[in-house]
Design a protein around this nucleic acid. Structure first.
Lengths: 106, 106
DNA sequence: ACAATAGTTCGATGATTAGCTAATCATTGA
DNA sequence: TCAATGATTAGCTAATCATCGAACTATTGT
């Protein structure tokens, strides 16, 4: 979930998701829609993929990216619900899987 | 909207919002809930406030922060809807393929 | 095998960010 | 007015991030 929100923090990446909304697109096709270099876009794809927001499928020499809507919806809705929901579950704690901010539960 | 997503990118700030879910809290009360210094928390409050996610009200020498749920919901739901919504053609850029600023819409 | 195409990985760089301590501001109470 | 309290601002460091060009991998077509 942290990765999802981190991925959504960048406008370029949010826009990529919107472009993938209607149909899958190749890396190059996506890259052509933004005024940044291909390596930069590739890095954005990585972030989105590690967050689980997009999936890649190689076809010949192109790579087709598709949106994984369910992951996005679950993260966003899940967070909203954690705010609206039962007024109890705020004190959870996870153990040291991050270097700093290990107290983090959201 | 960009500011909202940027604010949500940090786990500490998301946790602050969750703490504010039930009732407003003072800056000190919130700061005491995290293992970081008060100035650091103050900076987080600034980010949240500039995003419109929280509102501050001074009472004597304490400052009470309260969650502005509607802003949060509108941003998150709004984004989800922009992905699920009417599949208007987002990128008809076949000819020319110029770097327009179409990506500034998210 | 070679050249072209699609895409990523590598290495460096400038900008932003989260974090700290120390200093400051603002309010209250003696 | 002075001291204490709650909170922010100032100044700094270290880490992270978005970006680039160059090099690399993989695939296709000749």
């Amino acid at each position: 979930m942290n990765q999802v929100f981190r991925a959504l923090a960048d406008p370029t990446r949010r826009r990529v998701l919107q472009l993938l909304r209607e149909r899958p697109r190749t890396a190059g096709e996506l890259a052509a829609a933004f005024p940044v270099s291909k390596p930069t876009m590739s890095a954005h794809f990585s972030v989105l993929q590690e967050a689980g927001l997009i999936a890649a499928e190689r076809n010949g020499r192109t790579i087709l990216y598709r949106l994984r809507m369910s992951v996005l919806e679950e993260a966003l809705m899940g967070f909203v619900h954690s705010l609206e929901g039962p007024k109890r579950a705020v004190a959870r704690r996870r153990r040291g899987d991050v270097k700093r901010r290990a107290w983090e539960g959201a």
